[in-house]
C-alpha cells in the first residue's frame, strides 16, 4: 500500500492508503476528498479531477502525456505542476505523494 495525501484549498488534509495500480483520482473519490469531481469517470475526457502535484514530487510523478496536456486546457488556473489525477497511477515509489486540490474544477 502507498500513502497519499490530499490537501484541500482550505488546508484540510486527507491521508489515504492506496493500492498500487489504482489512480490518484479513484482514491480521492473513494475516500470522499472534496473538490475532485471526475465527471467523466476517469477517461481523461473532462479535466474535473485537476490537482497540483507538490513541487517535491514533480519529478517522481512525471509529465503529462499529450492527451492529458490537451485536456488540461479546460482546467482552471493551470500551473506547471498541474496534472489530472485520473492519469496518475499509484506505485511504490510514490509513497508519501502530496497533491493539492484547486479552489475549483473548471
Amino acid at each position: 500500500m502507498t500513502k497519499l495525501t490530499y490537501i484541500a484549498p482550505d488546508g484540510a488534509t486527507f491521508e489515504v492508503e492506496a493500492e498500487d495500480g489504482s489512480t490518484v483520482m479513484e482514491n480521492a473519490v473513494r475516500h470522499g476528498v472534496p473538490g475532485i469531481e471526475a465527471e467523466c469517470g476517469g477517461a481523461c475526457a473532462c479535466a474535473t479531477c485537476h490537482v497540483y502535484v507538490d513541487e517535491e514530487w514533480m519529478d517522481a510523478v512525471g509529465q503529462p502525456e499529450a492527451m492529458e496536456e490537451d485536456m488540461l486546457d479546460f482546467a482552471y488556473d493551470v500551473r506547471p505542476n498541474s496534472r489530472l489525477s485520473c492519469q496518475i497511477r499509484v506505485r511504490e515509489d510514490l509513497d508519501g505523494l502530496v497533491v493539492r486540490v484547486p479552489e475549483r474544477q473548471g
Partner: peptide, 8 residues
C-alpha cells in the same frame, strides 16, 4: 490567447 504553444 491560449495557455501554451501547442494546440488540440
Amino acid at each position: 490567447v491560449h495557455r501554451r504553444a501547442e494546440f488540440r
